[in-house]
């Protein structure tokens, strides 16, 4: 699963939707998977879950370039995040890096520093027509 093969602690209960990297896991390297992943430990490197969801738990600390279908940040992430669908930063989350996603949700109280770019399939009709705004008769002081 990874070059450094982080040890998986507290394997998820049967039926759990996530593979869990527990809070005592410290790993670095390349991580890719074909299943959803919950990280509560520390990881440094690259994470690729092209068709799945990465959740950074409240105890998770990542310094990583992340590519996934969906990313949920409840802990701390430093690095760029690319999500095909959605990035969510929950109120306990901290993300420092550049986001590219189709949808971005940031809860009040979350910390974010970086840039946000929407991955868009160039549809001009989706942009609001600001040229149609009424002209101003400026009341300047």
């Amino acid at each position: 699963m990874t070059e450094s093969t982080p040890k998986v602690m507290h394997p998820p209960a049967p039926g759990s939707p996530h593979t869990l990297l527990g809070r005592t896991v410290v790993a670095q390297g390349q991580l890719s998977a074909n299943e959803d992943l919950l990280i509560e430990g520390q990881f440094q490197g690259n994470i690729t879950l092209e068709d799945h969801c990465l959740t950074v738990g409240t105890e998770g600390h990542l310094k990583a370039e992340i590519r996934a279908r969906q990313v949920v940040v409840q802990g701390s992430v430093t690095g760029n995040v690319t999500a095909r669908e959605k990035v969510e930063i929950r109120r306990t989350g901290r993300l420092m890096g550049d986001l590219v996603a189709a949808t971005v949700a940031i809860e009040e109280g979350a910390y974010f520093k970086g840039s946000i770019d929407i991955s868009r399939g160039e549809k001009p009709e989706e942009s609001q027509d600001v040229t149609a705004l009424p002209r101003l008769e400026d009341r300047e002081v």
């Binding site: 949700a105 840039s115 600001v130």
Partner: peptide, 18 residues
């Protein structure tokens, strides 16, 4: 950053630095 600001500016096609 508020969700409303995000939604409004991203819908306008903006690239947003925060």
């Amino acid at each position: 950053v508020s969700q409303s600001t995000l939604d409004v500016l991203l819908l306008r096609g903006a690239r947003l630095y925060v």
